[in-house]
């Protein structure tokens, strides 16, 4: 149990996907302009991470390892994640319009996002079991959502601040991201 907890905390804050692994930077800058969009995007990414971690760790542990073809993991993961996201989008779209409006429009944007692919590859590299993979995906997803929410909150404030013209928009967002990453560096001493 304490092992699972430590995996969760390591993935959520210490090895945060965005701020210390630098994965998923495109949604980090693209969808962090408004808080509401950031929350939806974070939820969609967490959902996709959970689903893809489950399926890829099953495939890794029961197909790739027995046949001794672990080197094929990237290509098989892309295939599996892309089709699963398709199925999830299809299901949400046909059954629940409200949920589709909240999450569905983000799903095509993150089909093979590097954060989603990254977490499955990290799971494989660390040799996590299926449960451990799920916990690490949940942690990574929540860490991603957390950073996206912090960033969008800061950027909403920055919009109205008195900022030099040449730094407005993306430049100041990059500097903010750097300072945020520096702050998250403080977590690295925790474990």
């Amino acid at each position: 149990m304490s092992n699972l907890l430590s995996i969760f905390i390591v993935m959520a804050v210490i090895n945060n996907l965005v701020l210390s692994k630098f994965l998923g930077l495109c949604p980090f800058f693209g969808v962090s302009k408004k808080l509401s969009n950031a929350i939806s995007m974070g939820a969609a990414v967490t959902l996709v991470m959970l689903i893809s971690s489950l399926s890829t760790s099953v495939i890794y542990n029961y197909i790739l390892i027995p046949f001794n073809i672990e080197f094929m993991n990237i290509i098989i993961y892309i295939l599996v994640i892309a089709s699963l996201v398709q199925i999830v989008e299809l299901t949400i779209r046909r059954t629940n319009i409200a949920l589709y409006n909240a999450l569905g429009i983000y799903l095509p944007l993150i089909t093979t996002n590097c954060a989603v692919l990254g977490i499955t590859l990290i799971n494989a590299r660390e040799g996590y079991s299926i449960i451990e993979s799920m916990v690490s995906a949940l942690g990574a997803g929540i860490g991603f959502t957390l950073v996206l929410i912090i960033m969008s909150g800061i950027r909403e404030k920055l919009e109205v601040s008195d900022c030099p013209k040449s730094m407005r928009g993306l430049p100041i967002a990059f500097i903010t991201a750097a300072l945020l990453a520096l702050a998250f560096l403080g977590f690295s001493g925790m474990m």
Binding site: I59, I63, F67, I69, M72, I75, I76, L79, V80, S83, L84, Q86, I87, L90, T91, R93, R94, T95, I97
Partner: peptide, 28 residues
Amino acid sequence: LVIAILTSIGLACAILIFIMNKVLPAES
């Protein structure tokens, strides 16, 4: 073996999408 596994996983995904497409109710 690698080609066979990759093909079968791809095929399985394709069949799954096809089945889901048929089974789920039509969109509004």
